[in-house]
Design a protein around this nucleic acid. Sequence first.
DNA 1: ATTGGTTCCTGCTGGC
DNA 2: TGCCAGCAGGAACCAA
Length: 278
Amino acid sequence: MPELPEVETVVRGLARHMVGRHIRRVEKNRPDLRAPMPVDLVARLEGRRVAAVRRRAKYILVELDDGTVVLAHLGMSGRITIALPGQAPNRQDPHDHVVLHLDDGTVLRFNDARRFGRIDLAEPGALEAHPLLVGIGPEPLGPEFDGALLAAALAGRRTPIKAALLDQRVVAGIGNIYACEALHLARLSPSRLAMTVVGARADRLAAAIRDVLERAIAAGGSSIRDYVQTSGELGYFQHDWTVYGREGEPCRRCAASASVRRVAQAGRSTFYCARCQR
DNA sequence: ATTGGTTCCTGCTGGC
DNA sequence: TGCCAGCAGGAACCAA
């Protein structure tokens, strides 16, 4: 499922092949994903040059030469694949909702079977005020992110820390998998009240979040069933998961047998070690 | 104001 | 072997 590391991996792949290129032609194969796409999407993109590709939270930001920014969210099944000029063309699929053709022959496909993804535009100079980005919390890989900042974001929150980590207003980019992994690394119980994560616990959690996200990016993200890098290659961080998807197995840290449990929190699966997470 | 529940969507999986 | 209900999940939205 695309969380911060998967989106970051996609952004790096896109930046490598899009920046400086002109968008020659755009195919928009349906009007909507999770929400309607801009009606003038094709006209706003065709003929423009790509100035930069960046990431904010789980959003891919493609900045055009007129200052317009394309916001793309992969939802849970979204993928973007790139076929370079001279390579075999990537195969057309019924869920290829938007296809970009660049001036050098590169073809990019936004594919999303479940259509939980999203594509929108921000007017020049108005990115910060875009409704999808307003209120999103700090970037966990930013230089200012630490235990104190995290504790401040959690202050007054009477919800389990696991649920709080999924709230994009608290920290940007964390999803179900990395919330579980970070809590395990920090030895914190997922059901602990968010507002009690202060001091050394907050320091530990902030460091764990940074650590797990950085290692996941280095591995090209985690691939389960949908996610692939822009090259079509799989990420391989799923092999390094310590709790996610390991219900009934021994803890990889404390080695207690069958200590990895699964519970439902806010309608989602939480995996944790019943022995070493407090 | 914060929080919990619902909803969107399709493909895969597990149980019979 | 085949069928299908149930599940997976990000985040907007709604209700309390």
